[in-house]
Nucleic acid binder design. Structure first.
Length: 533
DNA sequence: CTGGGGTCCT
DNA sequence: AGGACCC
């Protein structure tokens, strides 16, 4: 087998709870639960001593621990910010950092370890070991993994000292084993597993769906062919597995059950989508739909502004009431949007986007008939690259323009982004919308390709004069609750963060004022500058 | 009495 | 557009 890689999995302890305890240290000494709607999504370790578990219902949690303190965690903004600070720290060790959710990161430290190996550094094993170490692999992985335990400890120390967050680490020669090993000793500990203990580690799990990558649906399929335990999965006849899963999936699942995971650590770049959703008891009138979607849109526009890129597609998600346990059933509709609608100088941009959103809504819901909605979601995808005001990027923009135009030229009037050969799939995505999508323009206005492009970006005189920067550079002011004198002296970056935080707090307040009492959420950075009187 | 996000594949 | 997977 190949043990040439060295992987570290970092998992922040009860992440949301730690962020809230850092924001408000008095929460450290009390049992704390993070609440989303009627659920405790995570809790600190004080609360766990009472038996509070992940995703426990509020009444049940309160019964177990009447003194449980609940903090609303429905707005993930602060968690997301802290999460990216962690990832940024990790990227100082290797560019190969893959995020999984907000609280987990994989690092491929192979190169770093090999450098340390050459430096003949000390071979001291730090932290826990899973399994016995009596018979060791001689391929060199043992030394690498031992060195990695020191690196993992260093990394966890830095996360603690820089961000005041404790974490767990798993160290192994692949992602799967690193993740499973790290969960063996919690919280604030680390565990290394050597290849010879891989099978034992996997077998220590309770069921096939405890293996990351094997979810509920796969487990059900496995049961269908009589495979209910991990041991049975390890020994299953591959041919029989293939009959239900197909060749590729069967091989993958079987390998996972043996602790084999060839997947690489894929560096996570900027997010592919930015979205918000809000579940609710019941919405059945259109004005209420509009209010909810406007709240979501206002918050979402701030997130997109923080991101700096401009989205090209908007997606609406609706969950209808369903008496069955089919919780996951959501319907989505998406359409392209003209990026220029996000321009800060665009008047009534919220109203314009809302018009598009309501058209999407009407494609899911016939408002003339009764309906019963339990979730609304809004998401932006397919981002344009952030504008960089350099000469090089200016030229690159022109090149992009040229390639877009040449693709359009080759394919007649098709979607510039996905030049699919079959034209049958190219139904206009925004049907009857009064705001024509770029695609519709191309389909209806068969004008010169230059003219077509100018329509796409509206008032630009020519492609090379594109004021792309205007799309996302909103002006920054001093928040009314901050000290203006202090604000003036702050670096531009910090000013922007404070201003965006202020706008976000306002949007959040508007979002919650109608539905529930919201405790004020102190912001750590802002607190330094807020006036005391 | 079931969150609010994300990813990739089909 | 939906469905699988992850947290």
């Amino acid at each position: 087998m190949d043990h040439s890689r060295t992987i570290i999995h970092i998992d922040l302890d009860c992440f949301y709870a730690q962020v809230e305890m850092n924001k408000n240290p008095s929460l450290r000494t009390v049992p704390l639960g993070i609440q989303q709607k009627n659920i405790v999504v995570t809790s600190n370790y004080t609360a766990r001593e009472f038996g509070i578990k992940k995703c426990m219902l509020i009444p049940e949690a309160k019964k177990l621990c009447p003194s449980l303190v609940l903090v609303n965690g429905e707005d993930l903004h602060d968690y997301r910010q802290t999460s990216y600070k962690v990832t940024n720290l990790l990227q100082k060790y290797t560019p190969l950092v893959e995020r999984l959710g907000l609280d987990e990161n994989y690092l491929d430290v192979t190169t770093l370890i090999n450098e340390k190996l050459n430096q003949k550094s000390d071979l001291k094993l730090v932290g826990n070991v899973f399994g016995d170490t009596s018979d060791k692999c001689e391929c060199g992985c043992t030394e690498r993994l031992i060195i990695a335990t020191t690196v993992a400890q260093e990394i966890r120390d830095v996360i603690k000292s820089e961000l005041n967050l404790t974490s767990c680490a798993g160290i192994a020669h692949n992602k799967l084993l690193a993740k499973i090993a790290g969960a063996r000793h919690k919280p604030n500990q680390q565990t290394v597993v050597f290849p010879n203990s891989a099978l034992e580690l996997i077998l220590s799990l309770n069921a096939p769906n405890d293996i990351p990558g094997i979810g509920r649906a796969l487990f059900e399929q496995l049961k269908c062919i009589g495979v209910e335990t991990i041991e049975e999965l390890q020994n299953v006849d591959l041919k029989r597995l293939e009959t239900v899963l197909g060749q590729d999936k069967a091989k993958l699942v079987h390998e996972l059950s043996l602790g084999i995971d060839k997947s690489g650590v894929k560096p996570t770049g900027k997010p592919q989508s930015i979205g918000l959703e809000d579940s609710c008891r019941s919405i059945s009138v259109e004005t209420e739909v509009k209010i909810k979607l406007e709240q979501l849109l206002n918050r979402l526009l701030l997130l997109v502004e923080e991101d700096g890129r401009v989205p090209k597609t908007i997606k609406l998600t609706v969950r209808k009431f369903n008496k069955d346990n089919k919780m996951s059933h959501r319907e989505t509709r998406q359409c392209n949007v003209n990026p220029s609608i996000f321009s800060s100088s665009q008047p009534n941009k919220e109203a314009k986007i809302m018009t598009t959103i309501m058209h999407l809504f009407n494609r899911i819901i016939d408002v003339k008939k009764p309906y019963h909605i339990t979730l609304l979601g809004l998401s932006f995808t397919k981002f344009q690259e952030p504008p960089k005001n350099t000469l090089a990027s200016f030229l690159r923009k022109d090149l992009e323009v040229q390639s877009v135009l040449s693709i359009e030229n080759q394919n007649g009037v098709e979607d510039a982004e996905s030049p699919v050969p079959s034209t049958s799939k190219l139904a206009p995505t925004e049907g009857e919308s009064p705001t024509p999508s770029p695609k519709k323009l191309k389909l209806t206005n068969l004008v010169s390709k230059k003219r077509c492009f100018e329509d796409y970006y509206e008032d630009c005189e020519s492609p090379s004069k594109l004021k792309v920067a205007d799309l996302c550079l909103d002006s920054v002011s001093c928040p009314p609750d901050a000290d203006k004198e202090v604000f003036k002296e702050l670096p531009k970056e910090v000013q922007k963060e404070l201003w965006e935080d202020y706008k976000r707090r306002r949007a959040s307040e508007m979002n919650f004022c109608s539905s529930q009492v919201k405790k004020t959420k102190p912001n750590t950075l802002l607190n330094y500058f807020i006036r005391n009187n």
